[in-house]
């Protein structure tokens, strides 16, 4: 489980948050808290990079939906990147891929998010 989402990168106009290991228990709420911090600072473009995440379960999904709702409310942009196939399939089954663009790599996500108009 990613206990502390201290791993992030702030770029001009967007922030990338890196998760690691697992997103499968309520400690994952720290991911949501970290996002809240940047949203409150006025960031409206957020990338969550799952390159190191092995497993996301229903608890993890509930946390990600919380983030999706918040970014939707502020009319921000959320991209996911680096999803492993197993996690991509879960997002697909739940229909999340319809609402959040997913990129193979963080770089691709950054390139696209900066050209996306709010």
């Amino acid at each position: 489980m990613n206990r502390k989402f201290k791993s992030f990168k702030e770029l001009e106009g967007c922030v990338i948050i890196y998760t690691d290991n697992y997103l499968n228990d309520i400690e994952g709420e720290e991911l949501e808290s970290t996002c809240d911090i940047f949203l409150n600072k006025g960031k409206k473009r957020v990338i969550i990079d799952f390159a190191n995440t092995e497993l996301i379960n229903s608890i993890g999904i509930s946390i990600l939906i919380g983030i999706m709702e918040k970014i939707k409310e502020i009319k921000g942009i959320l991209f996911f990147s680096g999803l492993k196939k197993i996690n991509h399939d879960i997002f697909n089954v739940l229909g999340l891929t319809k609402y959040v663009p997913i990129f193979q790599t963080e770089d691709e996500a950054v390139k696209n998010i900066m050209t996306n108009n709010l």
Partner: peptide, 12 residues
């Protein structure tokens, strides 16, 4: 955790 599981399972 149980509540979060329900919420996540149904993407609520």
């Amino acid at each position: 955790s149980s509540l979060y599981m329900i919420i996540g399972t149904f993407s609520a």
